[in-house]
Amino acid sequence: MAKRPATTTATAPATTPIPNFIRGGDFSDPPASNKDGEKHYMQIDAPEPLGPWRLTDGIALVCSGAMTRSSHQAIDIGGAVLEQEFDTAPVGRTVEITWMHCKNTDRTCSGTTSQSYAASVLDPNGIVVAEGRYVPGINFSPIPATQTLKFPVNSSAPYTLKFEGEAGTSCGAMIYRVVGQAASTS
């Protein structure tokens, strides 16, 4: 009987699932209409807190599922800056942050030319490790699309996720279902 060569297997840390490290990515707390009565949105002004998120500049709207035409609340990023500090995964792992976005199709936003926004991840030293600029949909379609930022974890200290709206008004892209997890190709 011939001896078989020794084989190596992947180490557990590289294959171990990583729980969602983004908190409040569904924007469900507070309910969208609790502050503005019967409206399907709630206005948030910087520096008003939004759960684990910090609105550091501008005005954003938390929008109900009726406005997003889905069962999910979303944030209309408008021209605001929204940040969250988060702990990621063990050093050496590659992680990704995914989210859905769609155009704001509210009739008061008709004719809005730009619903673009930027998203970035900053390491503990404030250095950008992943970034992108996004424009939801073509025409005035509410069809959602998944977006992704992928980056290697090089520090055990907290990182920061930042969304920066580029619309001059609250008629910006709607962002929802923000999730942080192990990258599919770790």
Rank of each mutant, 00 (worst) to 15 (best):
P19D: 06
S170A: 13
F86A: 07
C63N: 13
G180M: 10
A66L: 10
M42H: 08
A119C: 14
K162S: 11
P49H: 08
A60C: 10
D76V: 02
G132K: 07
E85R: 10
E38I: 06
D87N: 12
V179T: 06
T11E: 14
G172S: 01
P124Q: 06
P30T: 03
R177H: 02
G168N: 12
K150M: 12
S184I: 09
V179I: 12
F21V: 00
V129S: 09
T15E: 07
S28G: 01
I22P: 00
V128I: 13
P142H: 03
P152K: 11
G111D: 07
R54Q: 15
P17G: 06
I97F: 09
F21Y: 12
H72S: 10
A74N: 01
A74E: 08
S70W: 05
G25F: 02
P19N: 02
G58S: 01
V135Y: 11
F151S: 05
T56K: 13
L55D: 07
F163H: 04
R69W: 02
Q73V: 02
D87P: 00
E166F: 07
A157E: 12
M174V: 02
K39Q: 13
P144C: 03
G137R: 04
P124K: 06
A145P: 00
V95Y: 04
R93V: 02
S120C: 13
S64N: 08
L61N: 09
Q181K: 15
K103F: 04
T112L: 04
S70D: 00
N20L: 09
V153C: 09
E164R: 11
P31Q: 05
Y117K: 00
G58R: 02
Q147H: 12
F27A: 01
T15L: 14
R107N: 10
A66M: 10
A119M: 10
P158H: 08
H40F: 15
I22W: 02
R93Y: 13
D26Y: 04
I59R: 14
F27D: 07
C63A: 14
A145K: 13
N104V: 00
L122Q: 04
S70T: 12
W99I: 01
A6R: 15
S71E: 06
E85D: 15
T11D: 15
P17S: 07
A10W: 14
A74T: 05
I59Y: 10
G24H: 09
G165Y: 11
G58H: 03
R93G: 00
N104F: 02
G111Q: 02
H72R: 09
V179G: 01
